[in-house]
Design a protein around this nucleic acid. Sequence first.
DNA 1: GCATCTGTTCTATGAGTTGTAGAACAGACC
DNA 2: GGTCTGTTCTACAACTCATAGAACAGATGC
Lengths: 125, 125
Amino acid sequence: MILDVDLTSEVPIYQQIHDRVVEAIAAGELADGDALPSTRQLAVDLGINFHTVNKAYDQLRREGLLLITRKSGAVVQRVSTAGFAADWQARLKTLLAEAIAHGLDEREVLGHCETTLRAFEEVRA
Amino acid sequence: MILDVDLTSEVPIYQQIHDRVVEAIAAGELADGDALPSTRQLAVDLGINFHTVNKAYDQLRREGLLLITRKSGAVVQRVSTAGFAADWQARLKTLLAEAIAHGLDEREVLGHCETTLRAFEEVRA
DNA sequence: GCATCTGTTCTATGAGTTGTAGAACAGACC
DNA sequence: GGTCTGTTCTACAACTCATAGAACAGATGC
């Protein structure tokens, strides 16, 4: 699993780790039961502190995407989470509004959504 | 113009103000040339400090959505901004991946995008 | 048993962000 | 002249971010 983070980005490192894992799950590169590297190992690989990796993993666990045990480490396991849909739709509205406000056409924006979703499908197929 | 912010939210107040203005522009409730309330006035209306409003307005100005002068105050005026598209598409990918990772179907996600975009169109019409 | 790796938890520190606050200046308006 | 405006400056408490060190306990392999 390739997981590249930009240490110079304004986006927090733990957030980048979180986002890359989510994208890998969406693309099917990570499926239920797949193991992630240990917090200490990934921290060494990325050249960061293991507490930072721990924070990203913990966030994924709270979101119901990761199961973490002392025995098996971090394993992808998706469980239903309440209240996700409403929060997600609110963020979608804000993001799409940003594109429209900046002058993009509705059809153009929908095309970007379609292309992005198709990319996930294709990697999975 | 109604602008409601949640002071108890974990989302920063200035970010909420920014997002609501962007959504209003996308929905056509705010068009080019429309004036926003002064920083001090909006701060009083929302019961917050005017520096916080100033931060939100300044962010909108840097994004090319607002023109701020001592004379006319804050006025909606959209100008082209470089580098917006790439950043936006990266954020779109992350947001859509989150939905797919949580088990939503691709068609379902695209449907949400379509519905949200249509809502903007309808308010504008 | 022993060493090692793992997740977990605690404290701590420095840098940066967030929101509030007060003050001051200058242009615009009546 | 008085008032409203945006702008800029400093300042503060609270919080976040990332790093750091230490310690504990379960699991694994020899």
